[in-house]
Design a protein around this nucleic acid. Structure first.
Length: 804
RNA sequence: GCGGGUAUGGCGAAAUUGGCAGACGCAAGGGACUUAAAAUCCCUCGGACUAAUACUCCGUACCGGUUCGAGUCCGGUUACCCGCACCA
């Protein structure tokens, strides 16, 4: 059959239009079919447009979604826009346009880029976090959190980005600098909205058992939550107040030779007039407060501190009086902000003790505590420890905790490194926090009927140096009345962080136009949970953790039907620049997906990104490599010109069945690269026969459809391979029995070294195989005159003859 | 420092989980077609020794071990990547 030259532009725009007109990718709201909810992280519509990294994730789940449809599932594969955020706001400030305008423009650009890739998104369910109809429900969830006491306002030291002029969550501070702009982060005391994610710490760990996530993601979340088991111990002081410390090594209590409290510890104020060197203490506190967290940790090598003169602590197990220091190596925000120092068995305490010449008492035998702290818990035996002497560390821990409990001097305690989530931002382009501050009633929730609380129009979006949101300048908006008592009151002027809208967005896809609930109960029951969620590793301790927290909360108040939002999570690797470095404007190695789609077509782009290497690992872009994918597409398209009538030919039968099996399995395990390799290998074999039958082309077309859907539709229509579209067909099945060949080539080894290859019947028994092997002259040459010690036959693989 | 990961041709990578190392693709070289080029098609393509696609030997970061047999398992070493980092 004569065919036109492959013209990707014509073919791709044609089929994109057909899909759109027929609405073939719209999920059915009610269906007798099994459901499948595939989810990719919705993009932030930045001014730069799509990055080549986006299609890697989107194409992967597009392949899964398309395969599921062919397998008869009712598939929901939605997309939307995580559109609140700083870059848009900064652009708006610089160019004097409204952030909503910028957002609209960016979304239009992103949308056209995504549509050009032929991704099978259900565009009828598109959502946008900056749409008041959407953020009404973000605010609604916040009110629920507030009503349950999980959102609270607190005066506290926060991470302050000096360039964004905004508070950051702990998760947004990376290596001491702002995750976004890499500027210095300092500590600032401010009143902030907080979310009690710590209340869910235990369940966020435990419920990882319920989900199918990569192990590295689970480990990273567990480490971030940082659960540790220890004890709180009360030390009386010579001034009468009790100083409580947290320790994971209560067994070393007899070895405590001094105490350290953080510079911010409240007892210092209480003791102020009894401490004789209070000026020295004050100046140390001042110095510490000036330092950012980063600086504090940078000087980790050199310990500093000041002893509190005029007060000592009393060790509850031996009555020994020991000095108390302040030092910034003890953090206010963890445990009780105070520690008992056991220099013999803790590296940090050891360094401090050496520097300040404090006694080091060995209580666990096994090391040389004059040389270094001995921290090994597994092998040591307790000494110098009264009732604990002779016990192992584990036994000692148990016994001392029992003792502390009995004597009411302490108790078991579990601590987490996880901190509550700093939830307010002093910026314009975010969801307004729906709270009113009343002089009489305090913080009062806006009634639900007043949601959404929309962002007011404002003249200037500039962040202010005094740390207030630009919203604070709009008096007409700020001044309101208290919903409770009706007296004059002021609105909260901080907005929510970008993570708010993305913490529940997948729920909205289930029922995106509902204006009486975030989604109907029916939709939530039908679609929950997300069956497969793919996204980046960088969100493991941010979005992924936050959204699990919100989901658990919504589960607790009866809104959602499952305790976990995502049944399965996978992660794609980054696409690097051609030079192997991360793509960035400053490195000049950015590839624009538009250029690739223009020059080679979406199908080539899709196949290339899936063929580039292990999906879960980083891979460098290769401009010449993409030509191989284009050739493959053209070779597939060219099959139409050698089409003959007929069914599956016997010489290709097992190859076809094996390929169906390989492609089917590889898509499920994210091995898109080997699935494509299998299709390439099959096409090579087909070309070797110089023809392809109608049935063979039909099967091949359905197999290639998830990867290269436009050209598949074109060939399907051009060659009249069936009714309707490719996406109306059924995924082909394979027969395990037909995957086998009658004869196989196996290796013949002598003493483990390859000497020959022989063709034998696939089901040949050992005797037959050995006979055939020994008939090989090469084999005879190496075994003649030797004793055959052992003979090994692995069916379908090899024969190994061991001769001495 | 702690936690996780990776290491295979000139390059991206495969290898049914202990069984023929390098599938598939890129790049390169040679040939066909062409006035020529591009495209396409065919052949070669880990290294050493070779006239040779005869032989033979070496080869999956490095050292050692288990095994008839190791890229794969075990012990140790090195390098690189990612995450966390004074969390008591």
């Amino acid at each position: 059959m004569n065919i036109e030259k492959y013209d990707h532009k014509m073919i791709e725009s044609k089929w994109q239009r057909v899909w759109e007109d027929r609405g073939v990718f719209h999920a059915e709201q009610h269906s007798g079919k099994p459901k499948f909810f595939a989810l990719v992280e919705f993009p932030y519509p930045s001014g730069q447009g799509l990055h080549v990294g986006h299609p890697r994730s989107y194409t992967a789940l597009d392949i899964v979604a398309r395969k599921r449809r062919l397998e008869g599932y009712n598939v929901l594969y939605p997309i939307g826009w995580d559109a609140f955020g700083l870059p848009t706001e900064n652009f708006a400030i610089k160019n004097h346009v409204h952030p909503a305008e910028v957002t609209k423009k960016n979304i239009a650009h992103f949308k056209s880029q995504l549509q050009a890739l032929g991704l099978s998104f259900d565009w009828s369910r598109e959502i946008n976090t900056t749409d008041p109809k959407y953020y009404k429900w973000t605010q609604w969830i916040f009110l629920k959190l507030f009503q349950k006491g999980l959102a609270y306002k607190k005066e506290m030291a926060v991470n302050w980005c000096t360039s964004c002029k905004c508070v950051l969550a702990n998760e947004e501070v990376v290596g001491g600098v702002c995750e976004r702009c890499h500027s210095e982060v300092v500590r600032k005391v401010k009143s902030q909205w907080m979310l009690k994610i710590t209340e869910y710490a235990e369940r966020l760990i435990q419920d990882l058992d319920l989900v199918d996530y990569p192990e590295r993601v689970k480990i990273q979340q567990k480490n971030w939550i940082g659960r540790s088991t220890g004890a709180e111990v009360d030390f009386e002081t010579t001034l009468g107040d009790t100083l409580t410390v947290y320790t994971t090594r209560p067994d070393t209590l007899f070895g405590a030779t001094y105490m350290v409290i953080s510079p911010e510890h409240p007892l210092i104020e209480k003791w102020a007039d009894k401490i004789s060197n209070i000026d020295e203490i004050r100046s140390y506190q001042y110095e510490a407060s000036k330092k950012s967290d980063f600086e504090r940790t940078e000087v980790a090598k050199d310990k500093t501190g000041v002893r509190l003169d005029g007060v000592e602590a009393i060790n509850p197990v031996n009555g020994r009086q020991i000095p108390i220091f302040i030092s910034d190596y003890v953090l206010v925000s963890y445990g009780t902000g105070a520690i008992m120092a056991v220099p013999a068995h803790d590296t940090r305490d050891w360094e401090f003790a050496k520097k300040f010449d404090l006694p080091i008492i060995e209580v666990v035998k096994g090391g040389n505590v004059e040389e270094a702290a001995f921290t090994d818990c597994a092998t040591g035996i307790m000494v110098n420890s009264g009732i604990l002497d002779g016990l192992t560390v584990d036994e000692a821990k148990k016994k001392i905790v029992d003792y502390l409990n009995e004597t009411k001097k302490g108790h078991t305690k579990i601590n987490y490194k996880l901190r509550d989530w700093v939830f307010s931002r002093q910026r314009y382009w975010g969801e307004p926090i729906p709270i009113v501050h009343c002089p009489d009633c305090g913080a009062v929730a806006l009634p639900e009927s007043e949601l959404p609380l929309e962002l007011p129009e404002v003249e200037s979006y500039e962040p202010t140096d005094n740390g207030e949101s630009p919203l604070a300048a709009i008096e007409s908006w700020v001044n309101t009345t208290c919903p409770k008592c009706g007296k004059p009151a002021k609105r909260e002027t901080d907005t929510m962080p970008q993570w708010a809208g993305s913490s529940w967005y997948f729920l909205r896809y289930m029922d995106p136009h509902n204006d009486t609930a975030l989604a109907s109960r029916e939709a939530l029951e039908y679609w929950s949970p997300v069956d497969w969620y793919n996204g980046g590793m960088e969100h493991t301790t941010l979005h992924l953790l936050y959204s699990r927290f919100w989901h658990k909360f919504l589960y607790d108040i009866g809104v959602v039907p499952t305790p976990e939002p995502y049944a399965k999570r996978t992660s794609h690797g980054m696409i690097l620049g051609e030079n192997g470095e991360k793509m960035s404007k400053s490195r000049g190695n950015v590839i624009n997906p538009d250029d690739i789609v223009n020059e080679y077509g979406a199908d080539t782009m899709r196949v290339y990104e899936m063929f580039i290497g292990d999906f879960e690992k980083a891979a460098p872009w290769s401009t010449s490599g993409i030509r191989g994918s284009r050739r493959f597409i053209e070779r597939y398209y060219g099959l139409a010109s050698i089409l003959i009538e007929g069914g599956l030919r016997s010489e290709l039968e097992s190859k076809f069945h094996k390929t169906i099996r390989k492609v089917s399995e590889d898509i499920e395990t994210l091995k898109f690269n080997t699935a494509i390799a299998a299709l390439m290998s099959l096409i090579n074999d087909i070309y070797a026969t110089k023809s392809i039958t109608r049935e063979e082309l039909r099967i091949f077309t359905i197999l290639i459809d998830p990867f290269a859907p436009h050209v598949a539709e074109e060939v399907f229509a051009m060659c009249s391979l069936g009714d309707g579209l490719v996406c109306d067909q059924q995924w082909p099945e394979y027969d395990e029995n037909k995957c086998k060949d009658d004869t196989v080539e196996i290796a013949v080894q002598v003493n483990g070294k390859l000497k020959a290859r022989i063709k034998i019947a696939a089901d040949a028994d050992e005797a037959a195989a050995l006979e055939a092997a020994k008939a090989e002259p090469k084999v005879a040459e190496f075994t003649d005159g030797k004793n055959i010690v052992k003979e090994i036959y692995v069916k379908g693989k090899l024969v190994n003859i061991v001769a001495k």
